[in-house]
Design a protein around this nucleic acid. Sequence first.
DNA 1: CACATTGTTCATTTTTGTTTGAACTAACTG
DNA 2: CAGTTAGTTCAAACAAAAATGAACAATGTG
Lengths: 167, 167
Amino acid sequence: MDDLLQADQHELDPLELQVVSFFVDGVRVLGLPRSIGEIYGLLFISQTPLSLDDLVQRLHISKGSASQGLRMLKSLGAVREAEGGAERRTYYEPAIELKRLAGGFIREQIRPHLESGKTKINRLAETTRDIDDPARRKFLSERVERLETWMRSGGRVLPVLQKLLGQ
Amino acid sequence: MDDLLQADQHELDPLELQVVSFFVDGVRVLGLPRSIGEIYGLLFISQTPLSLDDLVQRLHISKGSASQGLRMLKSLGAVREAEGGAERRTYYEPAIELKRLAGGFIREQIRPHLESGKTKINRLAETTRDIDDPARRKFLSERVERLETWMRSGGRVLPVLQKLLGQ
DNA sequence: CACATTGTTCATTTTTGTTTGAACTAACTG
DNA sequence: CAGTTAGTTCAAACAAAAATGAACAATGTG
């Protein structure tokens, strides 16, 4: 490997393109950036684990995007580092169990918002208590009560969701 | 109402601001534009139905935003036109039953994506059948099979979700 | 019908969020 | 340890999405 050009990092074939575009659309629904979909999509359809550099070359994205994308995918539990290869560089493979994917998304993207929502509602309840006009105060506390009910429902739904998606 | 200035469309009071900001955050999680949260938030905390013009004045948003926002909220089933007022202009009030809100969101924002996802997976299955190398084809059809399983799970989860949120 | 009021549409501007790439740290290697 | 390779960080460039506001129906009113 000296006077030989780097083994051809060819373009994505049509099927790979189809899969990548499927996941690009998929992650957009979830509100995640496109590069996340590209990276996960290519890993999903690859028979062997890929390195950061493979992703950069085959997807034509920057090292920065690939690095940040992998970080997020790891935090979501959607990719893991492949075992074995005693190489220096690390190779990644996708998690493909829906349970794990949904679990990670719920944990990282949904729960935090639910929590901060509850906090805000508590502050809202306080503000409401200070309202002078009794009629207005009554109306407001009914609405706050309604929000609390929503949050409780949300909290009850997530575990069920996870169970259902866990097959 | 002649030499009298238009009754003061005052600024949002602190509580209203809190509620609006709560919903602004809420809709962002759902991937909807901020103005949707502002409009719904103000309606949610208002004791009387509000007109498009009320929203423009109190939220300092453009007529265009208010019009488009109301259209989307109507399509989601999150606001409805108030009955009664024999006025020319229409007044809006919020739907506050979680069931209705979740139902609208699922119908308008989730189902369409699930459907188009299924279509794409079908195309993917076709492309896979044309692959020459048997080992590669086997691997790919396992992955496509996996995607189909995901979609089935998704389809099964939505009705349960709706039921749970319907109290 | 001239005028006013209510609401919609859509090209342009603004805002927001994502990607890039150069500078950097860390870890191996001859 | 000088040089190479792997990966991270973050300010700046860029792209996508949302908001604006002027032009435009549509409908009511004297």
